[in-house]
């Protein structure tokens, strides 16, 4: 986060460093500071029209642009992978507009912009995780009105949230929310963790890295400062349970990672592989071997093969 040091730098292409003008970056940084000061509270900000569509990461891109400095190393992931099309597109955007170094290695990155996943490797105090958020309001699907949800947050009027969980248990016998699983931050604000799988929820709690959330279309920024208490909503007798997989990663043999199901043929063949591609490749480089490592198509096994 050495953005201040680079103010006014002009990158190739005639646009300001990291695309946004410095005035706009200051405005966004003010919103970020406010968000850090009130963990879990959604701060309205004057989201700009970006040269990429709303809903495709404009909030995350603006947050990253506002905090990015020339000495940062940026990693961009979508669905846990560095090479998904939109991750590639956003990484190229910052390469072009800021010229900063990019990386696929979680440990080397100072800023990680993500959509839908938190990296498997434990993040450190030197890192910032920037989430792309489509709908920042955890109460939105229970109460569509912004005017009402803002009052509900202000008054900590969250009974409705548990009504939803109650209904899940009454209908299915367990809580049937698998992603965008709502959390309570520092015993105060109910927050949407963005559509990450609930598997990732425990990683948000007491995380050493700063976590920033940007919603461009909905014009909101919120934050979790390092080591913030983040608790997934539940009932005493139906406690929160992260997703567990019955399989190990077919490539690296990991047993405690989030897995993608890959359909390998049209006869029911499938394999489960780590969604965090960097993590999987590192494990293989360290000599871990999954059951199908030798057999997997090169396209799935990726660069490490």
């Amino acid at each position: 986060m050495s953005a201040l040091a680079t103010s006014g730098t002009v990158a190739a292409g005639g646009y300001n460093f990291a695309y946004l003008d410095e005035q706009t970056k200051r405005m966004i940084r003010r919103a970020i500071l406010k968000a850090i000061a009130i963990p879990g509270y959604q701060v309205p900000f004057a989201s700009r029209e970006m040269p990429m569509p709303y809903g495709w990461g404009t909030g995350g891109v603006q947050v990253t642009a506002a905090i990015l400095g020339a000495s940062d190393r940026l990693k961009v992931i979508d669905q846990g992978a560095d090479d998904t099309t939109n991750a590639v597109s956003i990484r190229k955007f910052f390469e072009k507009t800021s010229g900063v170094e990019t990386t696929t290695h979680t440990a080397e990155a100072t800023i990680i912009q993500t959509r839908h996943r938190i990296p498997e490797k434990t993040l450190t105090a030197d890192q910032v995780l920037v989430y792309q958020v489509p709908i920042p309001e955890p109460l939105r699907f229970l109460e569509p009105r912004e005017t009402e949800t803002r009052v509900m947050h202000a008054l900590e009027d969250y009974g409705l949230m548990h009504v939803k969980l109650y209904e899940d248990i009454a209908t299915h016998g367990h809580i049937a929310t698998t992603y965008a699983y709502p959390v309570k931050v520092e015993d105060r604000y109910v927050m949407d963790p963005s559509p990450t799988p609930k598997f990732d929820n425990p990683k948000m709690n007491d995380c050493a890295a700063l976590q920033l959330f940007g919603a461009g279309r909905e014009k909101r920024i919120y934050a979790l400062p390092p080591h913030t208490k983040v608790v997934s909503l539940d009932f005493d007798d139906h406690p929160f349970e992260p997703t567990k997989f019955d399989h190990a990663c077919a490539l690296c043999g990991a047993t405690h990672t989030y897995l993608d199901e890959v359909i390998t043929d049209d006869a029911g063949g499938r394999m489960f592989v780590c969604s965090d591609t960097d993590h999987c490749e590192e494990r293989r480089a360290e000599g871990h071997r999954g059951a199908l490592l030798g057999e997997a198509p090169a396209a799935i096994a990726g660069a490490a093969e």
Partner: peptide, 28 residues
């Protein structure tokens, strides 16, 4: 511009969420 962005973002990969839902549907 907002509407088309958000409607069309459904084209982006959602397989992490979908995997989570797939697991839930199978379980139920």
């Amino acid at each position: 511009v907002q509407a088309t962005g958000f409607v069309e973002h459904l084209k982006l990969p959602h397989y992490v969420d979908f995997q989570a839902e797939l697991g839930l549907i199978r379980q139920m």
